[in-house]
Design a protein around this nucleic acid. Structure first.
Lengths: 273, 273
DNA sequence: TCCGCGATAATGTATGTACATAATCTTACG
DNA sequence: CGTAAGATTATGTACATACATTATCGCGGA
């Protein structure tokens, strides 16, 4: 890689150079580490300044030209690094005004939601599922899907998911047959509906709601727990090009299932800090 | 903007040109829409092809040079668009091999987790909190924080959060005093611990676990519900430069609190598709 | 047939240059 | 004194060029 080849040069010498000629006694934090592409090194260096608190929230950064001479790279390279950090939410940029450390990252915590089959398999258990009910109907006949016009043909599915034979999740799903007509032909005898859909149907957005509920007597019987047991309820509606594709409601036993993960846009991890 | 100025030229004429000379009867989907920067138009065009199913998962895309002449822009511009789509997870790129439509986006569903005070305020309710207990101790004395060495000084907090006077969340929190010594001086009489920390302490990663549990008698009394009521339990450990900063355990009443949100890296939204 | 090695094709990075865009600052005029 | 027009400054985009990196392909020899 080019960056590596010049590492000794740009990373150490040049940055050390300007810093010492200008004034600097001890700003060695601005040193690049020579690992990976130059723009990545700059990302790490800048993100490091922020995470270490040297550059506080709201504070203005040196402009691209200054950073460029500070690190001894071109403005374009600095621009790429800084623009990516801005895109990831670390920085806010305003033309003419400058670049500022972003305030308030609290909304960036996130939980990934995975397919139950994957989770069970990854934990080393045997995954199975059973379709309990399957019927075609039109929206509004007994079941109503709010975001879909009445009368739209729908496939309604109900199934149970097992880990090593123990029921862990109940799934009630509606599929828009206008959006996914092929699903009518699919028997789901080897692949679960969620997996089938995810592999086949592109989606452009999805919204979720996660709640805790007490199991009703019926659900408790299906899941093999006492009535009233705490369950995690996940409702997810998947859209494709602003059209609802599927609406699903999962119910999982509290002490057999949990959601977990680290923050998704975890640039720090990506940046090895 | 430069792109807008040349829109009529590149967006319509040039792309129309090569398509008709080569063979094409009806590939008008490759037309740019002239809105925004060129690389954004290309992102939209390519993402559109994928979301509309014209380019299926796993399929190989034309290479940068081909796309470049197809859209009548330089390779750098195509590169920027495609590289961003790859970074967002729509595409997978391999040198020499080419660019492919990503398979399996199922792991990209996500739930944002917000500060309870923000949620309550946004819903138009009055937010209050009360500190129930506060003590300093060393790790391992009665309480143990697994990821922290024994003997590390810790601040332990317990508090309740209210919406319009109704308790909605119980919080039990440990703060690493080695990492955040200032917290020892903070009385928390106007600002809640979570907010105080989030405003003051930078963090580089956080991991979460969300579960459903039945309220114990003690918790039920604090939260004003019947014993056994389903509650959402969120455990979050926040790290800063690989050092644990705070470990917090939230317990929220199931029918007064839920997590919801759309997929975070929702490029389709961002792309207006 | 198999293995290795060089040619090749694709993406990745860095820099230069030029101009666009949008705030902010300055200045001059009413 | 206020305001509007113009200068300035910082970021944003686009293109050209050059070279690095890395799979893959294909050919030749053991």
């Amino acid at each position: 890689m080019q960056g590596v080849a010049r590492q000794g040069l740009t990373g150490q010498d040049r940055v050390g150079g300007p810093a010492s000629t200008s004034a600097g006694p001890a700003r060695d934090d601005l040193t690049l580490d020579g690992r990976g592409a130059l723009f990545d090194q700059i990302k790490r260096a800048v993100a490091g300044q922020i995470l270490r608190g040297r550059w506080q929230a709201g504070q203005r950064l040196p402009n691209e030209a200054e950073l460029s001479s500070l690190y001894g790279v071109s403005r374009q390279t600095v621009h790429k690094a800084i623009a990516l950090l801005a895109r990831e939410g670390f920085l806010v940029r305003r033309r003419r005004a400058g670049t500022f450390v972003a305030t308030g990252r609290r909304d960036r915590f996130a939980l990934p939601i995975e397919d139950i089959g994957d989770v069970v398999a990854r934990e080393g258990h045997v995954y199975e599922f059973r379709i309990r009910e399957r019927k075609s109907l039109n929206n509004g006949q007994g079941i109503r899907w709010p975001d879909l016009p009445d009368g739209t043909p729908i496939l309604a599915l109900e199934c149970l998911h097992f880990s090593d034979g123990t029921p862990i999740q109940h799934e009630r799903r509606l599929v828009n047959l206008d959006a996914v007509p092929e699903v009518a032909e699919e028997p789901f005898d080897s692949v679960a509906p969620s997996r089938w859909l995810v592999d086949r149907v592109p989606w452009s957005s999805a919204d979720h709601t996660v709640r805790a509920v007490n199991a009703t007597a019926e659900m408790a019987a299906l899941l093999g727990v006492e009535a009233g047991a705490a369950c995690l309820s996940i409702r997810r509606q998947t859209m494709h090009l602003s059209r609802p594709v599927t609406l699903v409601h999962f119910l999982s036993v509290g002490d057999r299932f949990s959601l977990s993960g680290s923050s998704i846009t975890d640039s720090a991890t990506e940046l090895n800090l």
